[in-house]
Design a protein around this nucleic acid. Structure first.
Lengths: 250, 250
DNA sequence: CCAAAATCAATCATAATCATTCATAAGCAG
DNA sequence: CTGCTTATGAATGATTATGATTGATTTTGG
């Protein structure tokens, strides 16, 4: 069976069934597992399907889960600890910028008794902030449906009206040479600007972000203190040359 | 059965039945109890359900959906008809301001194929706009937890950046002499300003709002066309002296 | 209030799936 | 035929999902 034929076959099957298992395709086509895997990776790169553990699903939010690409709920325990630690830097009455993101989201419960004012561009944080009775300002701007973040010129303009005691950012990667990075340039711009209006900025990152580099640079390491929870000695030494590292200990 | 399939299955079942027992899912899917538990914790982390002892229930919607308790569901049928009628005034490619509120919320499904750009100060509308793939700008501002509206100086400032083809507002009362009114002065200010930047403004009001007067005045009747669905002759005559009235007929 | 039953979180070993590597085979141009 | 590229299949060690077990917690029914 030709490569193209297999691809057609896979897509056809997927269209019918919404979900396919790798083993199914192997049985049907007679090709080896390795080959089918290669097919799936290729088709995923062309955005014709989304791979999941054990098979693939049609693209589009239905069956494909945000967490797969995003890993948003992956290290949730870790993120909660990180968030709690981060929240401990917040003083009574502070004005705080909270970035859109899952780690900053976890900070919210720990802020409720601190009488803070929160400014955020993250729509996913809204309900939780509301539930905990925290005074909240939204930046406004264009709504990015994928991330639930608000971005764009209006977000920028809104930020200029505020000054923060503290600014908490999530990132997709931190690296001694390439600094803090994230996939979306517009979101990077918002993060960057928010931090310039803050007396002090913290970046929250779990261990999976170490040495990762994403497309859009937010700023160099020295632009913000880094809050992490586990990190090897060698990495630590390198980072501490560039910035202050706060380690959350179990 | 793939993990994603199970997740979809669980959410689907939950959507149908509002409540599910773990044992049910175990029986239906053939997966072990441990696995189902893991699924539930994961889905709970993503806020797609809430775990309870013995199973799971649908998440209690906060700002994402109009609260079921208050009057919003009372005249829901009426509001949907009203909303559909209102949406019929929207042209392909229009830029539209949607006020925070339950009636404007109902307009969203009818806008999805019109390629519109929506600007709103209503956090309750966000999820629905997102789900229907509508390009959306949020005004930003102070979040009012009770109504899910954004208000204040920043909202005002944001509005000045936009011009609308159409502006749709909800109100708490309309009255021939006292005009359109609503309980909150800040929200009134936002409504008023949004309408001044629109080529045409509509107020949506069901029959319970007739002759009602609330604390904060938005504007006189002639500031906007009034969309209603049932109204007695006498009232109608009085209103038509002041403004254009569009009546949604069954 | 107590005790039995049900449900739970935490842990572990196992099984399934994964990415990576390497060697082979097939196609093709010179 | 030789040398090159590409597709394939098998093998590896790593990662992830799963199912069973444990003892703790919560609910239920007196």
């Amino acid at each position: 069976m030709l490569t193209n034929e297999r691809h057609e076959y896979i897509l056809g099957l997927l269209d019918q069934k919404q979900t396919i298992k790798i083993q199914e395709i192997v049985d049907d086509t007679g090709a080896s597992e390795s080959t089918i895997r290669r097919d799936l990776t290729e088709l995923e790169n062309r955005q014709l399907l989304v791979r999941v553990f054990g098979g693939a699903v049609l693209p589009g939010r239905n069956l494909s889960e945000p967490s797969i690409s995003d890993k948003s709920t992956r290290n949730l325990e870790e993120k909660i600890k990180l968030a709690k630690y981060a929240a401990s830097f917040v003083q009574e009455g502070d004005s705080v910028f909270l970035d859109a993101g899952t780690t900053t989201f976890q900070m919210i419960p720990f802020l409720k008794d601190k009488d803070v004012v929160v400014v955020t561009n993250g729509l996913t944080l809204v309900d939780a902030l509301n539930e905990h009775g925290i005074t909240t300002y939204l930046t406004g701007g264009l709504m990015k449906s994928r991330t639930g973040a608000m971005v764009g010129s209006q977000t920028i303009q809104a930020l200029m009206n505020y000054r923060f005691d503290l600014c908490f950012l999530g990132v997709n990667g931190f690296h001694p040479d390439y600094g803090y990075t994230t996939p979306d340039p517009e979101e990077a711009a918002v993060k960057r600007l928010a931090s310039t209006y803050a007396r002090k900025t913290f970046v929250l990152a779990d261990h999976t972000k170490a040495n990762q580099v994403s497309f859009a640079k937010i700023m160099d390491l020295d632009g913000a203190d880094l809050i992490v929870n586990e990190i090897d000695r060698h990495m630590m030494e390198q980072l501490e040359k560039k910035t202050t590292v706060k380690v959350e200990k179990q």
